[in-house]
Nucleic acid binder design. Structure first.
Length: 275
DNA sequence: CTTGTACCCTGACCGC
DNA sequence: TGCGGTCAGGGTACAA
């Protein structure tokens, strides 16, 4: 999905529009976006009449807190997007509507998802606690310190790139910002997490926070599918220094940016200054 | 326990 | 124009 900055951008767009609104009716067009144990029928029935009291985010999860105390959890993963209408959204934004939520102000929230890898589930407070317990710290929160990162790194023999993608260790980083953070920190993505020296850990800690903050300030990165609410693109794609730049010169040292595959996913890094 | 792989799904793109 | 292969920002179940 969209990673932390993109999901946070979606949250910022939706929160002022949805907070306090009551869901009048729900239509699920693609039942496979409703994650078990919730079913499309159960979701439809349970949400009708609920008021949204808060729109929040944890890692890459978008959370709608309902006045019954339950939470509607959403993951947009690779291609999910939200559109709020009327006016009736352009057809290009609604090619694969998986669900619609009618609101008490006459508007409708559309969830569109080409690949349908994203989805919804309904959780009780307790179920959410169990879910959240599996997630690592939020990298932009104050409690994510260099010391905390150092401690977690020291326990892992995984490549640092894979470590950054593991949501149980740090929550919210995905494939783009993992490469970007390592480039900023000048750390080779093939290094073992536990092998980073104190100075490198400090650089990586700063780099993670800086790249996520900058991306958030740019409303995220739009490479192909990601859109904020109502079709807005992000702007951070113009600031990428490693991701997607295979064969191009590094902006820092002019060496070629390389692409390798780690755990089945592309990693981009500079063969010159990341070592 | 940890780490890596296959899979879910569709569409865009490339080379033939 | 069509066809097959590859790839895509994620997460999970399962294997080693």
């Amino acid at each position: 999905m969209p990673e932390l900055p993109e999901v946070e951008t979606i949250r910022c767009d939706l929160a002022p529009e949805l907070t306090g609104r009551r869901i009048v009716a729900v239509r699920v067009h693609k039942p496979d976006i409703v994650l078990s144990p919730t079913s499309a029928q159960r979701l439809t029935r349970a949400l009708a009449g609920e008021r949204i009291v808060e729109v929040s985010r944890r890692a890459k999860n978008l959370l709608f807190r309902l006045d019954s105390g339950r939470l509607l959890l959403t993951q947009v993963r690779m291609t999910g997007r939200f559109v709020l209408g009327p006016p009736l959204p352009a057809r290009s934004e609604l090619k694969h509507v998986a669900a619609e939520f009618d609101l008490d102000d006459g508007r409708t929230l559309y969830y569109d998802d080409v690949r349908r890898l994203g989805g919804f589930t309904l959780l009780s407070e307790g179920e959410w606690s169990v879910w959240e317990a599996r997630l690592g710290p939020e990298p932009l929160e104050e409690d994510f310190t260099a010391r905390l990162l150092a401690d977690r790194l020291s326990r892992s023999r995984a490549p640092i790139k894979s470590f950054l993608l593991d949501q149980r260790r740090i929550a919210g980083i995905g494939n783009i910002y993992a490469s970007e953070a390592l480039h900023r920190a000048r750390v080779d993505p093939r290094r073992t997490a536990g092998s980073l020296k104190p100075l490198e850990v400090t650089r990586l800690h700063r780099a993670i926070r800086a790249v996520l903050r900058d991306a958030l300030a740019g409303s995220g990165t739009t490479l192909r599918d990601y859109r904020a609410v109502n079709g807005r693109s992000g702007r951070f794609q113009n600031s990428l220094r490693a991701y997607g730049r295979e064969g191009e010169p590094c902006r820092r040292c002019r060496s070629r940016v390389r692409r390798i595959v780690q755990a089945g996913r592309s990693t981009f890094y500079c063969s010159g200054c990341q070592s």
